[in-house]
């Protein structure tokens, strides 16, 4: 067996630890990306009954971004089982109570409802910020690429960089500066 082939085999059977930075990422779109690594769908030996999934660490889940006005419109339903035990929680209310819950529920519902789903979820580690315990972080050998680039706020961009951008409009001569 050649050295390359050996490496391939080792990579396939190894349980890899991935890290994903959720800053400014849509949890529902990144859930389909994370699911692929969590279940081991990208491996050639994948089979539903084959234990070939990887561990995924999601950091900065407090900084996720929802599209449009979904913070107000998305509703999470829960029922205690008793009469009148139904509650409807808005996404921003749930996120202020537990900043990892939206990400966790998004990944959970992205996967099919099989018996394997709860075991697969045990391989997911979500942290609201970037304070990850050292014993978890030293396992990491791969970083999952973000789906959207992290946008810059205008007041955080330095003045030198602002001065380089070409102007698209020219003020008319009678324009009064404000």
């Amino acid at each position: 067996m050649s050295l390359l082939r050996k490496g391939q085999q080792w990579g396939t059977f190894a349980c890899v630890w991935h890290i994903f930075d959720a800053t400014w990422q849509d949890p529902f779109r990144s859930a389909h990306l994370i699911k692929k690594y969590l279940m081991g769908l990208y491996k050639p030996i994948y089979h539903p009954l084959n234990q070939c999934g990887d561990h995924v660490i999601v950091i900065n889940s407090k900084e996720i971004a929802l599209r449009g006005d979904q913070w107000q419109k998305r509703v999470y339903f829960h029922h205690t089982g008793y009469h009148g035990g139904a509650t409807w929680t808005l996404a921003w209310e749930l996120h202020s109570k537990d900043p990892t819950m939206i990400m966790k529920k998004a990944i959970y519902s992205a996967m099919d409802g099989t018996l394997q789903r709860r075991f697969t979820m045990q391989r997911l580690h979500i942290f609201p910020d970037d304070n990850v315990p050292k014993e978890i972080l030293e396992n990491v050998s791969n970083q999952i690429k973000q789906l959207r680039p992290v946008p810059n706020r205008l007041h955080e961009i330095p003045q030198e960089e602002r001065d380089k951008i070409p102007r698209l409009i020219q003020y008319p001569s009678d324009y009064q500066l404000k």
Partner: peptide, 16 residues
């Protein structure tokens, strides 16, 4: 200031 916000406005959102 964008960082002085309350309720749902304090979380990040993006647009299509």
């Amino acid at each position: 200031h964008p960082l002085q916000k309350r309720k749902w406005k304090k979380f990040n959102s993006y647009y299509d």
